[in-house]
Amino acid sequence: MNRSNLFFTLIVVAALFFSTDLSAQRRGGGNYGGGNRNVRSSANSSVNRNYNQNRNVNRNVNQNVNVNRNVNVNVNNSYHGGYYGGGYYGGGCCYHPVATAAAVTATAVVTAAVVGSIVDRPPAGCVTQVINGLAYQQCGITWYQPQMSGTTTTYIVVNPPR
């Protein structure tokens, strides 16, 4: 029954796509529910960490800048930003005044693929390149370097490595 097998396969494949799509909706775009639901903090997972407040402040400010830069390239990193900044660094993902100010500035400057921008994933249609043993994603004239940021892979726009 080749035809019915094929049909079944198509259904399974369609179901897979559909479920992938659902999960993308949940987490996709870097926040919950597809709205503007940024994570401001996460529960601590250890009682023995000497959480360093100064370090958290610095890191969170930087993280927010990154999140807002993402707006420029139309990819929202906020969920992972919160994860990175909160869960593993001991709470307090986001400093709202800083985040708000940066967001206002960022939206005023509509520039794609600024070097140093960080996104959750590169745009579609990029080509993987390996240069000096490290992976890059080349997207036209823009190069993204994947990096392990904590345990999350992010992509930072870099100058062409060659």
Binding site: N48, R49, Y84, G150
Partner: peptide, 23 residues
């Protein structure tokens, strides 16, 4: 890995209790 890379080994407390580092 926590201080340099922001990676918290899961259940890190298991490695802390019973040491001088314990909180």
């Amino acid at each position: 890995v926590y201080n340099d890379y922001g990676i918290e080994i899961p259940l890190v407390d298991l490695f802390k209790w019973g040491t001088d580092d314990s909180a």
